[in-house]
Design a binder for these strands. Structure first.
Lengths: 353, 353
DNA sequence: CATTTTTTGATATACGCCAATCATTCTGGA
DNA sequence: TCCAGAATGATTGGCGTATATCAAAAAATG
């Protein structure tokens, strides 16, 4: 019924259990031809290590760390929530998780935090990263300690992590554009865009995707140059208010970045019709704004799934299993009708698994 | 680190390991006060059974069955794909799965299939059900054998299954309506609806949700009575063709049911502008139609997540664990830009976990 | 009170793997 | 050829649970 054991493998390979064990857990001191015999037997019998038994035996504990930017950013608070909630469930499976707060968008702070990880005794870490070669040294050190590293939401220098989990921001921008275009029913219009900063990769990518689709499929729509907001709600509030008053011909708003609270406030104070409005990331205030009808669509990167994948992937890496196949993560579209329900008065709990 | 063992519980309760074991696996022949002592100790220590060790010991095999309607229905083929793909991964964890084909929409066939399950030795079954009291007897028999039963996609008589996994079809209909409404940019319009049959619960529910939202938020849109199609592509083809030719004022199509191939063919043969078009279930042809621009939106019930949840839930039931919390499943919205990519040339593989 | 029945305790084996020890056999270099 | 070092075999004691057995103790029965 339940597959061959390591004993079967040893027999089939014509070696002792001890040698088979030496090969599988590469403990060294094994002749090449023995290695070959064992590998071959594994292949022939289709042996797969019984992870339950292995973990039971070794009292395996998965010590994980997540490096997450601090601040009032609702999105990352949501990520935090998902991590702790999932960690909770996984504590029964010998997984311990520590969330390390890092000052947002600071290469130096991230550098230091990664450095501090090196002393600790983690098996795997997921890092909301930045693209900077300053990070290469501490990442290399960490990895040299046998710690598995993955990028989460925002990538690290690719050579220094085992995987990256996050959405394709060009796709996210394209999706926003598709819905914005639809909402014009082939009429003309003008779209005011907002972004935190355009040197931040993800914002530029979303805008790029957005432009591509509008240009290709909705030629009667004009995209106004993005107003740069530093993701600051106050800036967004002023900019949106100003745009609403000074240019009544605007037919749509699209903010690729954060700080949506300000935008939503500006809109909610406006009487009469308002532009069609698309934002990113489903958090408490964007959730409420959808329900209230202040905005129309939220494009969400599904942090619940991202966190789940991060756990799954890290465990697979630590177990040295072959990583389960993971398709590119696609952004989800939320309107007011398909919002996730929420038993715990927190609209952001993981939906899957 | 890794919690108290059953030995600790026995000590804390002041009974022997054997007695603690008798209580936990209710083997009988235990005095009430001993049961109380053990239960109390479990509570105090927060003991949770180490499932890995338990399964290892008992050589636990989870024998599962899925009852899925046959036929060329693309949606159920997709469900099948998800089941086998997941079963594949779980075979390493002692899960065996059998997919039992049942003639679609036939109470008698379903009745017989459930009956045949009773002889076999399954631990849990997931059934794409029907609401009929004819099913109660075989379900009761099955359950009497200690088999855990859940409804999948379409529910069973509620008293005879432990849980139901599927989306809220009213929500699905509301979501379709929201996007359809959006696409009219507050202009007027007329929507032709299609349904398989209105006595089938889910179709009626979707239509209901659709009507609610249009009436409440898009009063300038008129909903034409649904054309009944029996989910037959040929019927849909004729009906759609006819509608396209005879009534050029139509601004939208909404099909709550299946058979979309016919609808898509009719649309793709049409020159010039076409109505805004919303369908349900992302399968190969709806996927292609989105890409080709023949339709605009697909509302999907995420069978991958449903199947994943079915496995998780059945295992929890079999282990007599407390079932993990599961939020209501919300339908996903797909446009041509956020379609799941696909490495295996099959657009329908599971996206999560 | 003697006898049955119920309830408990003590103990052993197995599940598949990890980790370690010790003895033995096989190499290859001097 | 002898010997150090490398490679292998044989074996043991867990990990936490399931399951079974047998004897001993406690409770219920007449």
């Amino acid at each position: 019924m339940s597959g061959p054991t390591l004993n079967d493998v040893a027999d089939a390979a014509g070696v002792s259990y001890a040698t088979a064990d030496r090969v599988l857990n590469n403990r060294g001191n094994v002749a090449q031809k023995s290695i070959a015999k064992v590998r071959d037997a594994v292949e022939r019998l289709g042996y797969v290590r019984n992870v339950a038994a292995a973990n039971l035996s070794r009292k395996r504990v998965y010590r994980l760390a997540f490096l997450i930017p601090t601040g009032s950013n609702a999105f990352f608070n949501r990520i935090r929530g998902h991590i702790t909630s999932l960690a909770d469930h996984l504590s029964a499976e010998n997984v311990t998780v520590e969330i390390v707060d890092v000052s947002a968008f600071s290469v130096e702070a991230l550098h230091d935090s990664i450095g501090q990880l090196t002393g600790r005794d983690f098996d795997g870490v997921a890092i909301v990263g930045l693209q900077s070669d300053q990070l290469e040294q501490p990442l290399a050190d960490l990895r040299a300690r046998g710690v598995h590293i993955i990028g989460l939401v925002s990538d690290l220098p690719a050579a220094f992590r085992s995987a990256y989990i996050g959405i394709d921001n060009i796709v996210a921008g394209r999706t926003a554009a598709r819905l914005t275009g639809m909402s014009h029913a082939s009429g003309a219009g003008a779209i005011q865009t907002f972004a935190g900063a355009l040197d931040a990769g993800d914002h530029a990518e979303r805008l790029q995707g957005f432009r591509d689709v509008i240009a290709a499929d909705f030629p009667r729509l004009e995209i106004l140059d993005p107003i740069l907001t530093k993701d600051d709600p106050a800036v967004l509030y002023d900019a949106a208010r100003n745009a609403l008053h000074s240019d009544p011909t605007l037919t749509a708003f699209y903010n690729v970045g954060a700080g949506n609270k300000g935008l939503i406030n500006a809109i909610s104070e406006t009487k009469g019709t308002r532009p069609f409005c698309v934002l990113h990331e489903l958090v408490e205030h964007s959730h409420m704004a959808l329900v209230a009808g202040h905005i129309d669509v939220v494009i969400d990167q599904r942090p619940d799934v991202e966190v789940l994948r991060a756990f799954t992937l890290l465990r697979a890496l630590i177990d040295q299993r072959d990583t389960p196949p993971m398709l590119p993560l696609m952004p989800a579209i939320f309107v007011q009708d398909n919002l996730p329900a929420d038993p715990m008065n927190n609209p952001m709990k993981a939906q899957d698994t």
